[in-house]
Design a protein around this nucleic acid. Structure first.
Lengths: 109, 109
DNA sequence: CCGTTCCGTAAGCCATGACTTACCGTAAGT
DNA sequence: ACTTACGGTAAGTCATGGCTTACGGAACGG
């Protein structure tokens, strides 16, 4: 149940910011922490949690640690979410809605 | 940023159990709480949180409150997740895999 | 009515975890 | 070697929130 891990880990707003900052590409801790409302060690701790959860990966480049996104870490969470639309037809409808945001169907709401 | 709300709310394991129990259809609080490792009031509290987050909806039937899943509450979270695959081609592949998996009804793990 | 079932709310306890500061090792520049 | 950037780890503080028990009100059956 790694989707549970992903949910737990991404629940924290600060940690989510850290994670989202990696969207645009790998970065050293420095660059990630810059501008964030918390101290640099706090960011380090968040990165550790993210890494343990398989959501980021890290490699050293000299003195710096470069962190990068691991999209596969989100896979199980995605599948779990998809599981809520288990009917194929309904799933299709959802997909369509997502694609072009226009549904005049009979759905409530 | 309602996806943040959804993440926060679904991060708790017990609350997630409550939520998942509604997958098979609407249920009164009674039925939801049965078998869970926490007290009935705890379940009520979780349901309130879920409702405030737009993840479930509630209507009264006599003395009982019936709770039901609101899949739309997951929409933003889904979109946020999808946003991590911003390359159109890659996104398409993911969609295809998702559809495929659902058609087959095959569960992996 | 009276008891029972249903469930939401209040109050309080307690563990979890997100921060801080302080410190340490390592890498590179001079 | 000395120094300066980089960043992980330790220890301790404090707020958050998930749980419990206790209670109260609403609906239904007898």
């Amino acid at each position: 149940m790694a989707y549970g891990t992903a949910l737990t880990v991404l629940a924290d707003p600060t940690r989510r910011q850290v994670f989202e900052r990696l969207r645009d590409g790998p970065r050293p801790v420095n660059a990630i922490a810059a501008g964030l409302p918390v101290s640099r060690p706090a960011v380090s701790q968040h990165l550790k949690v993210l890494k343990d959860a398989g959501l980021v990966e890290e490699h050293s480049e000299g003195a710096r640690r470069i962190y990068a996104l691991r999209r596969e870490g989100l896979a199980e969470l995605r599948e779990w979410l998809d599981g809520f639309w288990d009917d194929a037809l309904l799933a299709f409808k959802i997909e369509a809605e997502r694609s072009h945001r226009q549904m005049k169907g009979k759905t409530d709401e």
